[in-house]
Simulated assay, not measured.
Amino acid sequence: MTRSERLADQLDRHWHKNLRPRLHGLADEEYFWEPVRGCWSIRSRGTSAAPMSAGSGEWTMDSASPDPVPAPVTTIAWRLAHIIVSCLGYRVGWHFGGQNVDSQTFAYAGTADEALKQLDEMYGRWNAGVRELSDADLDNPPTVGPERFPMEGIVLHVNRELIHHGAEISLLRDLYRWQD
């Protein structure tokens, strides 16, 4: 395996064995479930109580700038949107010639099924792009986008982000199933 294939395989194994199977059967009620008051989520346009809302379509993502401390608890919907746009989407556009993705212009998913389709598409584009990177690409900072450290570090960061946020989503699914 090449270095890029090893990096892609690290996340791909987690994706196929852990994260994606844990998302099977995700229903809208669970997607939008708010385990505590004040959760950030994906909401119908005009219904958010958060300081800011991002998105171009019927659904928007709760946000603030700067991020509040402590950060609010977020729903599965919000976490999936974060993975789709911030973890994968920006970088697919910057580094692999995909359509530019921006949180303000993205059409967030109003259903679990739609979000999973967005996730699968963006993950597939990311994984294919990583697999095509040469050793020279991995050793150097990209020429497009704001990230100015070697591409290998960016790939490892995205891997950590997806593993981290995927584990959070899995925990929320466990809590949802076992709630009183």
Rank of each mutant, 00 (worst) to 15 (best):
A167N: 09
A128S: 11
W94G: 01
A107P: 03
G153L: 15
N159Q: 07
L162K: 01
S44R: 14
W178Y: 14
S170L: 06
E114T: 15
G89M: 09
S86Q: 15
D120K: 06
D102S: 11
R177H: 13
Y108C: 00
E34Y: 05
G98W: 09
H165N: 10
T75P: 08
N159W: 09
Y176D: 08
R79M: 14
N140L: 12
V144K: 02
S103C: 05
S134C: 04
G124C: 07
V36L: 15
R91P: 00
H16S: 13
R3L: 15
L138W: 08
T2K: 10
S63I: 05
R131C: 12
D135H: 05
L119E: 07
T143N: 07
V101F: 02
L162S: 01
A71Q: 10
A71P: 07
R131K: 14
D174C: 09
W40P: 01
A115M: 05
S53P: 10
R45F: 02
Q118E: 11
S4Y: 04
R13E: 14
F96N: 00
E114F: 14
I154Y: 06
V92K: 02
R125N: 08
A50C: 07
L116D: 03
H157D: 10
E114A: 15
W178P: 00
R13H: 15
I83C: 08
L172V: 03
P35T: 08
E114V: 15
A128P: 04
R20C: 04
V69K: 03
S4N: 03
A27Y: 05
H14A: 07
H82E: 04
E58A: 08
D137I: 09
G89I: 08
A50Y: 05
D120Y: 07
W94V: 06
P142D: 06
R160K: 12
W78N: 02
D180C: 09
R160S: 12
H82K: 06
E147G: 03
I163C: 07
G166W: 15
T143M: 12
D102G: 03
W59C: 11
S41A: 04
L26A: 03
T75Y: 12
L175A: 02
L23E: 01
P141M: 08
E161Y: 08
Q99T: 15
L172A: 01
E58C: 00
G129Q: 10
D139I: 05
H165I: 12
L80I: 06
Y90R: 06
S65Q: 06
F149K: 09
M52P: 00
M52Y: 06
D180F: 13
R177W: 04
R22E: 10
W40F: 12
A112P: 13
